[in-house]
Amino acid sequence: MSKLYNAIINVVDKFVPSRLRPLWMHPAGPKTVFFWAPMFKWGLVIAGFNDLANRPKELLNARQTGTIALTGMIWSRYSLVVVPKNWNLFSVNLFVAITQGVQFLRAYHYQTIHQNEKKNSE
């Protein structure tokens, strides 16, 4: 598999414009896994935005969304410590933390109100 990947990279390498060369040759650029892993992780951000728009708050799990938000914060910090600094990894994890943090607040708010309503009705 790595031979196929290297062959593709060598072919594409010839067509990269000179002004995009610094990005292409960066230690965390498209020629490395340090680029592609965060790119695929953007799918979590897209799913988070979709959930913000479409998922009812009664279906949210505060523990799950809180855990994912915390993970996003931890990995955001980690991405600034590793060498080379991976700004793509930082930004995707920051957005994961933000979207899941908002989801956590929605779930927590709903569950708190729902529990108060149960106590008041009893």
Rank of each mutant, 00 (worst) to 15 (best):
F49C: 13
G29K: 06
N6R: 15
S76R: 06
F49W: 08
F15Q: 06
S18K: 14
K119W: 05
F49V: 08
V11E: 10
K57G: 02
P17T: 02
I8P: 05
W36T: 13
I46P: 00
Q115F: 07
A37P: 00
G29M: 03
R21W: 04
V33R: 10
P17A: 07
L89S: 13
N54T: 14
S79F: 02
L52F: 11
P30D: 03
S18N: 09
K85W: 08
A69W: 01
G29P: 01
G29T: 07
G101V: 03
N61P: 03
Y5F: 12
I9W: 00
N116I: 07
E117Q: 05
Q100H: 11
E58G: 11
T99S: 09
L59H: 01
P17F: 03
F49D: 01
A28W: 00
E122K: 07
N50P: 02
T67N: 03
M25A: 11
Q100C: 06
I8M: 13
R106F: 03
V83T: 12
Q111H: 09
L89M: 12
I9A: 07
I74E: 01
N54H: 13
W75L: 15
Q100T: 01
F15E: 09
P30Q: 12
T65L: 04
W24Y: 05
V83D: 11
K85F: 06
S2E: 15
I46L: 10
N88Y: 15
L59P: 00
W24C: 03
